[in-house]
Design a protein around this nucleic acid. Sequence first.
RNA 1: GGCGGCUUAGCCAAGUGGUAAGGCAGAGGUCUGCAAAACCUCUAUGCGGCGGUUCAAAUCCGCCAGCCGCCUCCA
Length: 463
Amino acid sequence: MKKITVFNNLTKQKEILEPLDPTTINIYTCGPTVYDDSHIGHARSALTWDVITRFLRYAGYKVHWARNITDIDDKILKKSIELGINPSKVARIYTYSFYEDMIRLGIDWPDYEPQATQYLPQMYSFIESLIKNKHAYTVDNDVYFSVSSFKEYGKLKGQNIQELEKGFGRIEPNEKKKNKLDFALWKGVKSNNEYGFDSPWGKGRPGWHLECSTMNYSLFGPTLDIHGGGDDLIFPHHENEIAQSESLTGRPFAKYWLHNGMILVNEEKMAKSLGNFITIKEVLKSTTPNALRFFVLNTHYRMPLNYTSEALVAAQNGINRLQEALSDLSDNNLPESSTGNFAKEFTDAMCNDFNTPIALSILFNITDKINTEKNPKQKKAYQKELLNLSQTLGLNLINTQAEYATLKDKSFSSIIEMLINWRIECKNNKDYKSADKIRDILSKCNIEVKDLTDNKYKWQFKA
RNA sequence: GGCGGCUUAGCCAAGUGGUAAGGCAGAGGUCUGCAAAACCUCUAUGCGGCGGUUCAAAUCCGCCAGCCGCCUCCA
């Protein structure tokens, strides 16, 4: 297998991927905060790491992938007040919603899905060690990390502490902090009614950055191979993770830092805070998981990706062409052997910092071969190759009927609307015989049409 | 203000020194009862602009313009 090259954000250059253990890769990627339905930005992130871990396994590595769930956080508390339910229940509701989305998108289950609230004792000892080492200090019932205690602070962002301080004008000063760049490891409650956990520093909740450091340390020890996440997390989240973890262990936290680009809507970042997000559930009403995956993989993972409905249509049509080339195959009817003619090109592309757009273009090159190959045996071999490589990207090109079922509601409604409109046309032409026939047909399908004035109508299911 | 990134055909998007992948859309044709699918042909002398380095630049350097991200929670 060829060497895999990755763009390491810590060094800002492409490097050959050399895990600590040559046979195994430990990878941790930042997952969602579960306070609402996930949007397609989360889908992009999940798809990116799904494909990267799939390829690492394809390349022969043993992969241990962890993706956290942030299940305690200010936004969750806010939501719990809005909904009038316990914060842990809010977290569970949206964790399950996230899982539902991940299943529909065909994301492989990570090997670990640590949740913040399951690691509180480990967090306490993490904080205690930092206090003992003078990297953290307590103020009232809060604990803060002291940025000035970590000389390399800013190395991921590429700025030193002085430079970072200069650009700090936008942040409201917190009087409790010794340095304005310091961040909370533990946030004490303001009043006893507030939700929280009992800790050595009183009732409160963990700071966001702490969970990733703690869970990484618990799962993988001082140093892991790859740490991933969205590029909006580089600063301060990942910077702070580095500061905490390296202050604790004195060892490098992660060898390689990989970040996926954002999804944009109208050239603007899609984010919950901007309110311009499209949920995964919403988008899957009008497109298939395959098409969404194609849409995402057609752009290199580090580039921004502009969301448009046109692009999703293009993706769906592209997927259709690939599926068409395998339309005579099914699970009971798979060719035995692959040509292997394209596997090298495919691997080369993926080894070059996971160049999925090139990898996809190779799938189309194989499709050309399938569609023009006269020799049936050879054609089968090309089909097998297309199937193998598409599966490495997590695409599902055969047995696709189940996928279309997710679109059923939309198609179903539009067919009914169409029939009703046809019926109105018949009525307007005084062709009542045809109009009645259409109404009878709908009626047999348990759809009752009710005429209103001015060609208006409504329809409903009847038992 | 500080730091980082982007600008390639109608649209999406690869390509980081050797003469522009791939997809979508579009045009013409073959096939077809008609479609669909498939196949064949065509669709950027040019990669934001201006300079420079080089035998050779979309690719390297400089300047300019436009756009975006992070610095507050964010995948």
